[in-house]
Design a protein around this nucleic acid. Structure first.
Lengths: 207, 207
DNA sequence: AGTGATATGTGAATGAATTGACAATATTCA
DNA sequence: TGAATATTGTCAATTCATTCACATATCACT
């Protein structure tokens, strides 16, 4: 992973990983780009190109070894992350996410959570602290935060950034701004719905 | 919206819409591409180009009218409040989503929910039916489903598709396949985290 | 009303991503 | 063991997206 990976490829890696896991579960041992292509609906060439950015993962005349591929993907992605992730805001959604915390062992789990009102939250499976003590309890080297708060979003973000957070996965519906060296990914169901609706409508028009 | 809109532009529309709503709420009446640019972190030219695909929305020497823009976007995107959306699978996550149901009045709320075990679910704020009765209780004209099940994913998807679902917003971690006229958007926190981590790491390397 | 200032909309240039085509190479089977 | 087969990895061509640069249109002010 030394070369710069196109943004779009980056978006496809998780798709591959997910599909490969499923295939493994189905007992598939080897796969070739053309089969995988049908499975994930991405052209074989694109797949091979994407894979080749990580290394020579396949064997000519044979295909790719599923286990090996999963291994390599996880490692390659994992190198880049023994990553400590914190969850900010333990409301309904935050709680639901924590229950997911066994995220397929795809990445480091959520290390701890913060909330403005930690006393009124039931039992959760990670340590929970007051958001005001973020500086104090922030795990060493933690750079990534999942943002689930519903109030004071901008203020919270500012505080996180001041304390070294470099990447935010945003689950609020609020808009906020960050310095340019901080990366945000929006996880927004509403936006996704809009996009799907739009696609469906475009299809309709064509017919 | 007669011309085909680039995929990437499509992904930006919801970002614009969200930002514009926020601006409106703050009392902003007009905005120019350069201001909006700082706000959403997209270059002014890109913004203007994206907008121009819909029509001549702005006024030279003046900028864009916020209200008007929101209006046009919503219309053009066909994000009516009429869109009937169903939720499939009312587990932790599904329940958390239902609590969000007042999605900023951006689009139609979730009309009803389905689960394989509707009796063991507490109080929720929409009608709840057994997934086996989907055909019976599916709202008229409903095309969009939010998928939150954790088991029998493929089977569930097949059933939905057979019953006229054309767009799926997928919150499972499972891989599944759909006919090509069905559109899927993955909402996957794990993937998002992976992407953010990548970006942060890439930044690190550059410095 | 007319003129200057300003921001849009877009053609042309650049840059990024996808796809086609094939040489290189591992595997398989005689 | 060696030839035939099958599939990868990658160069080159193409398609798609971004950005530049400026002509064009609207507003604001005198």
């Amino acid at each position: 992973m030394t070369r710069s990976v196109p943004k779009v490829t980056l978006q496809r890696y998780p798709i591959y990983l997910k599909a490969l896991r499923k295939l493994k579960q189905l007992g598939v041992k080897k796969i070739m780009s053309s089969e995988l292509a049908k499975y994930v609906d991405i052209l074989p060439t694109t797949i091979r190109r994407d894979f080749s950015l990580i290394g020579r993962l396949g064997k000519q005349g044979y295909g790719y070894d599923v286990d090996e591929l999963i291994e390599i993907f996880s490692n390659q992605l994992n190198i880049d992350f023994d990553e400590r992730i914190v969850l900010i805001g333990v409301g309904n959604l935050g709680k639901a996410l924590l229950k997911y915390n066994n995220w397929d062992h795809v990445l480091g789990e959520v290390t701890c959570a913060f909330d403005k009102d930690p006393d009124n939250i039931g039992d959760i499976n990670v340590p929970l602290y007051n958001i005001n003590d973020f500086a104090k309890y922030k795990p060493q080297g933690c750079r990534i935060a999942i943002l689930c708060v519903s109030e004071n979003v901008q203020e919270t973000v500012n505080m996180l950034v001041e304390n070294g957070i470099k990447g935010i996965v945003d689950l609020t519906h609020e808009h906020f701004v960050v310095p340019e060296d901080v990366h945000v990914r929006y996880v927004d169901i509403v936006s996704s719905i809009i996009e799907v609706v739009f696609e469906v409508n475009e299809d309709d028009r064509k017919r």
